Simulated assay, not measured.
Amino acid sequence: MHIPSSTTGQIEVLPFDAALEEALRPSPDYDVDRWLYVPNVYSEYRYILGTRGTRPLICVGINPSTAAPDALDPTLQSAQRIALSNGYDSFLMFNVYAQRATRPDDMEREYNPFLHGENCKAFAYLLSLSPAPAVWAAWGNIIEKRPYLMDCLRELAELGRGAGARWFTAGPPLKSGHPHHPLYLRRDTALLPFDVEQYLSLR
């Protein structure tokens, strides 16, 4: 369980570029040839966690919990299984908001513009890893927990549009119209095209 110790505005947040530079260096804690973990130490926020490959699937959730290299939580274990089942050789977990909180109800009430800006840089980096990025919308109804989350997603969708990203859901959307969260999905759940622009236009 990760309960935020403070708001992210009360801590030093490492800019994404600096965090990525550190994450690309050898680490005594995990195999950097297998994992991409930014920042590369456990903290109150996380930009990226995933495996390295030539055909990655970018999985977009809402916010990070306790997962770290070689210690994936159930959500990320499910995300990895579904990515591999759908023909991808790796998965990269990204989140609409980078603050760690196991319970979304513990997320900060007001978003941190600096953290969000650096998180957007992380998403742009992930998009740059593939000529035609594949992005899995996987946030479930949790996106309704904070009003700022949909606004953050709109900016991410704009970055995806500029990079020619293809969006998917795992199975059909929920009755609410939101894409399924990965946690309780079967490992062989098929990815289906997802019109993120239409989704956003209805909200």
Rank of each mutant, 00 (worst) to 15 (best):
R25D: 04
S27H: 10
D29W: 11
Y30Q: 05
Y30T: 05
Y30S: 05
V32P: 03
V32T: 08
V32N: 06
D33N: 11
L36S: 06
Y37C: 09
Y37P: 04
P39E: 05
P39D: 08
Y42K: 05
Y42L: 04
Y42C: 02
S43E: 15
E44T: 15
E44A: 12
E44F: 13
I48W: 03
L49N: 07
T51K: 04
T51G: 11
R52S: 00
R52I: 01
G53Y: 03
T54M: 15
T54I: 15
T54H: 13
R55K: 14
P56R: 00
P56W: 00
L57H: 00
L57W: 01
I58K: 02
I58M: 10
I58H: 03
V60P: 01
V60Y: 01
G61H: 00
I62Y: 04
P64Y: 06
T66Q: 12
A68Q: 10
P69D: 11
D70G: 03
L72I: 07
L76W: 08
L76C: 11
Q80R: 10
R81W: 02
A83W: 02
A83T: 05
S85P: 14
S85N: 14
S85W: 11
N86D: 13
Y88V: 00
D89W: 09
D89K: 08
D89A: 09
S90K: 02
S90I: 06
F91V: 05
F91M: 06
L92W: 05
L92D: 01
L92G: 02
M93L: 14
N95Y: 05
N95V: 05
V96P: 00
A98T: 04
Q99I: 06
Q99V: 07
A101N: 01
T102Q: 10
T102W: 07
P104C: 15
M107G: 08
E108F: 00
R109G: 13
N112D: 14
P113K: 02
F114K: 12
F114Y: 12
H116Q: 15
G117N: 10
C120G: 11
K121M: 13
K121D: 11
A122M: 07
L126Q: 05
L126S: 06
A132T: 01
P133C: 02
A137Y: 09
A137L: 15
N141K: 07
N141H: 11
I142T: 14
I142P: 08
E144W: 13
K145T: 12
R146W: 07
R146H: 14
